[in-house]
């Protein structure tokens, strides 16, 4: 009984510490991303804290604007759901949660990620911004082409694209996620970390400096899976070249277009924490260094290595155009094939 109480206290305190650190840290990532992009483009770029931290703060103080949507209550709540989902996603990969009801497993991660993708479909189907069909232009005046057909808001088209991305676009990420679990022959994160970093699992010292002895990343299937994971990461974050569901040139921002003031600040928090959570999951699963709030060295190492994917993302974004489904379908199929190859090899290993 006493052990259970201690565990629950540990779970709560570690979750609070981890969530606070992750949220604050994630607010720095967009600044780093933008700085790298700017340097590639021979620009100075914004100060590091501006795109993540100060813009969130600024939007927090903006005048409240009611979103122009079908069900405002639902639309507003989606962003809160989103924050909850990405924070839970991150927490499930921290050591205290590994023992809770099997959530610290591939099922927990994949389930929450799928839920996060569904949010964009819901947001898109709700939002009805002024910037497309709602514009007061006499489209249906005499002489106009095709009167009487369904007129769609750009956000609704974004929702359709989000469905397509759910069906195929995010497939590579899920295939890549399976590889470390297949190598550990377990569905639990604890087994994946134990396989790579037995010293950490064995140690109970809070000053432990256990480094992984055999990271998945340094194996052949691990490298293949890491590459596929990175591309899947870009797809899930809806960043270029896979930002078709929020392509600025036609859909502007997609389903999140109507989030303004505080809601926009929350959306930024959601997106930033997701960016960090997916990076942290990569470090945990592919390198074997979990985010343990009670072992400072491991936590700092996880934070530092979590910069890897955002920096690579920034470089990719700077050099990539937006791909259309003409290119996304073959790319997703090809990457999934590479992921499946890695999976087959890892099962052999």
């Amino acid at each position: 009984m006493e052990n259970l109480l201690l565990f629950v206290l540990g779970l709560i305190s570690s979750s609070i510490v981890a969530a606070v650190i992750a949220t604050l840290y994630s607010l720095v990532l967009p600044g780093i991303e933008r700085k790298v992009q700017a340097r590639i483009q021979q620009r100075i770029g914004p100060p590091i804290l501006t795109p993540g931290f100060w813009s969130v703060l600024k939007f927090g103080y903006k005048k409240k604007i009611e979103p122009n949507v079908q069900m405002p209550g639902l639309y507003r709540s989606l962003v809160y759901f989103g924050i909850g989902i990405v924070i839970l996603l991150f927490l499930f990969t921290t050591p205290y949660w590994w023992a809770v009801l099997g959530w610290g497993s591939i099922l927990g991660i994949a389930g929450l990620l799928k839920l996060e993708e569904v949010l964009y479909v819901l947001m898109g189907s709700q939002s009805q911004s002024f910037l497309s069909t709602g514009m007061p232009v006499p489209d249906l005046a005499k002489g106009s082409k095709h009167i009487g057909i369904r007129r769609e808001f750009v956000e609704q088209h974004s929702a359709e694209r989000a469905l397509k991305m759910m069906a195929i676009g995010s497939l590579p990420l899920y295939v890549a996620l399976l590889v470390p679990f297949a190598m550990a022959k377990s569905t639990m994160i604890s087994s994946v970390v134990a396989m790579q970093n037995p010293a950490y699992i064995m140690s109970s010292d809070w000053l432990s400096t256990a480094l992984p002895s055999s990271p998945v990343l340094f194996t052949f299937p691990g490298i293949l899976a890491a590459i596929v994971y990175f591309v899947g990461y870009v797809m899930l974050l809806n960043e270029k070249p896979f930002s078709i569901l929020k392509a600025k040139i036609d859909l502007i921002e997609g389903g999140v277009l109507e989030y303004a003031s505080k809601l926009r600040a929350y959306y930024y928090i959601m997106r930033n924490v997701l960016m960090f959570a997916l990076s942290s999951i990569f470090v945990t699963l592919f390198i074997g260094i979990p985010f343990d709030p009670f072992v400072p060295f491991m936590m700092l190492l996880n934070l530092a290595l979590s910069l890897l994917l955002p920096v690579m993302l920034a470089a990719l974004v700077a050099f990539s155009p937006i791909l259309t489904f003409r290119q996304i379908y073959p790319a997703a199929i090809g990457l999934s094939a590479v992921g499946i190859l890695a999976l087959v090899i890892s099962l052999g290993v």
Binding site: V137, V154, D250
Partner: peptide, 14 residues
């Protein structure tokens, strides 16, 4: 066959 209409502008960031 036309399924739907998508319209953009004249005020549009792109």
């Amino acid at each position: 066959e036309i399924e739907k209409e998508l319209s953009f502008g004249p005020v549009h960031p792109a």
